[in-house]
Design a protein around this nucleic acid. Structure first.
Length: 505
DNA sequence: TTTTGAGTTGTTCGA
DNA sequence: GTCGAACAACTCAAA
């Protein structure tokens, strides 16, 4: 067999697309036959296993990706477990002598990829890795003092001041056909769909896959972008891009989004302002990856260790009420039910719901993060923990401790016409706007005529807002006092050491 | 080198 | 009703 006939293996991970895929682009450019691989790693080597909603998405995304690759003569091989073993099986079977992939940025994945790269290289194979999922590599973006960014705005400015992202790569032409194939699991064998019909409702809301991603982008640029500035905060409107799950699975790249928004903004000033705002949200995604790369424990450890002493409470019944959308606060319940039904929650409501769990119920942000991880189709290894830590106040550029969302005010401000609450909490739909976000304050006659019996058809509030707010503020100020005491003890120790130091000087 | 101003997404209170 | 101040502590960047 001539050397040129040895196929190239492209290992797909969170980059399930053909267009603007640097690894695939390079692979086809080598002139070799190309074989594609996806490995469902599960919890192999400490990797974070996908949540249920993500698995549902992945099932459909892999199906679409496999079809698209097959059209240009590339077989998508499916395996599960140890990726090194999976790769070596394909290499043995096909004689592949070159491997390419796009990089990952969480510590466990980096360790896995590094090991595999080393062992393949030492076995004489060529290994190439690319940046396929970020605008900037986390190790390249630095403050002037050479440290990682810890505040978003300077980070964003440094992106704006940096070089423009590349022009997106077009989908490559079909490579030369491969004369060999590799054994693959059936998609069904990956067992990605939930046992029960929980995710059946997702189908109506989403179109996983590269084509669906491009359609979502086009729809947003066409009808969502213009009023994005304010509309993005109104959960009852369709003013957000809905691109998050597509981005998470790499069905579209931030480079493609960046360029599309930059093109749209040339139209007029309104679009220009909206596009910049939208791109700053894309930059938040970058910032989350920046934080994760420099803080591998982002999902499990407080970014600010001051919070290690926070007196979290845990009450199973309260936590369950939050998860099932029965807290008695309509905006929170609407969000939690939207999450359960669609695998997604509007960003504004994510903040309110997360703040409610952390500050009103004083439940550890990590529990909420895990629930979101399991139920969000866009669950992202960087963005999910970064967002939760931001709300908790333990994160980078964190919300001030005193920023405790009032779920009634948030509802009245951002869902003033009640569209969102009526859609997801239909048992309240007969209530007029005046009471919709605080049904417990409505007069009995109003509740009766709306067909609502508090405590029966809809719950009473789980906690009183004012009392919960005070309790959270007290806990935070306690934390601060504890920190001061700690510092005083440290100061005392320093003072005790001073005479000796003076002597040494 | 030191100082100063600003920082995604908020709420409450009192004038 | 509207409006500004207060609510920490710390990082970053510009002056």
């Amino acid at each position: 067999m001539p050397a040129s006939a040895n196929p190239l293996l492209i290992w797909f991970r969170s980059d399930l697309r053909r267009s603007d895929n640097p690894a695939l682009h390079w692979a086809v450019g080598t002139g070799k036959p190309v074989i594609a691989l996806y490995v469902l790693e599960g919890d192999f080597d400490g990797m974070r296993p996908l949540g249920g909603a993500s698995k549902w998405w992945l099932h459909h995304s892999l199906a679409r990706h496999g079809e698209r690759l097959a059209k240009c003569g590339i077989q998508l091989v499916l395996k599960c477990g140890d990726p090194e073993k999976a790769i070596s099986e394909v290499v043995t079977e096909t004689g592949a002598d070159t491997i390419a992939w796009n990089r990952r940025y969480d510590a466990n994945a980096i360790a896995v990829d590094t090991d595999i790269k080393a062992s393949l290289s030492s076995a004489g194979l060529t290994v190439r890795s690319f940046n396929g999922s970020l605008l900037v590599e986390p190790w390249e973006q630095k403050t002037r003092s050479g440290t990682p960014f810890r505040v978003f705005t300077p980070f964003w400015k440094s992106i704006l001041a940096g070089p423009e992202p590349r022009t997106p790569l077009s989908a490559p032409p079909a490579p030369v056909p491969s004369s060999v194939g590799a054994s693959s699991l059936d998609l069904e064998a990956l067992d990605l769909l939930p046992d029960r019909n929980w995710a059946d409702g997702f189908q109506a809301h989403w179109e996983p896959g590269e084509a669906g991603a491009q359609r979502a982008l086009a729809r947003f640029l066409d009808s969502g972008l213009r009023s994005y500035g304010k509309g993005r905060d109104v959960p009852g409107q369709c003013n957000t891009s809905m691109l998050s799950p597509h981005l998470q699975f790499g069905e579209i790249s931030p480079v493609q989004i960046w360029n599309a928004a930059r093109t749209a903004e040339g139209m007029d000033d309104t679009l220009a302002a909206a596009a910049t705002k939208f791109l700053s949200e894309i930059a938040w995604r970058e910032f989350a990856y920046h934080l994760l790369f420099h803080n591998p424990d982002l999902a499990t450890e407080n970014y600010s260790s001051t919070f290690d002493a926070f007196p979290w409470q845990f009450d199973r019944a309260l936590f369950d009420a939050w998860k099932t959308g029965t807290t008695g606060y309509p905006i929170v319940d609407a969000g939690m039910r939207q999450l359960w039904k669609t695998g997604w929650m509007h960003n504004r409501v994510r903040m309110v719901a997360a703040s409610f769990l952390i500050k009103h119920l004083m439940i550890d942000w990590r529990r909420g993060e895990k629930w979101f991880w399991d139920t969000l189709v866009d669950a992202d290894v960087a963005n999910n923990p970064a967002g939760w830590q931001w709300v908790a106040g333990s994160g980078a550029d964190a919300a001030p401790y005193f920023r405790i969302f009032n779920p009634v005010l948030q509802g009245e401000k951002f869902d003033s016409d009640g569209t969102y609450v009526r859609r997801w909490v239909p048992e309240l739909s007969g209530l007029e706007n005046k009471w919709l976000h605080k049904p417990w304050k409505a007069p009995d006659a109003v509740l009766r005529s709306a067909g609502i019996k508090l405590g029966q058809t809809y719950p009473n509030p789980l906690v009183d807002h004012d009392a919960a707010r005070k309790r959270a503020l007290d806990a935070y100020s306690e934390l601060r006092r504890g920190q001061e005491d700690h510092e005083q003890i440290a100061d005392g120790a320093n003072r005790a050491a001073e005479p000796q130091q003076a002597h040494l000087r």
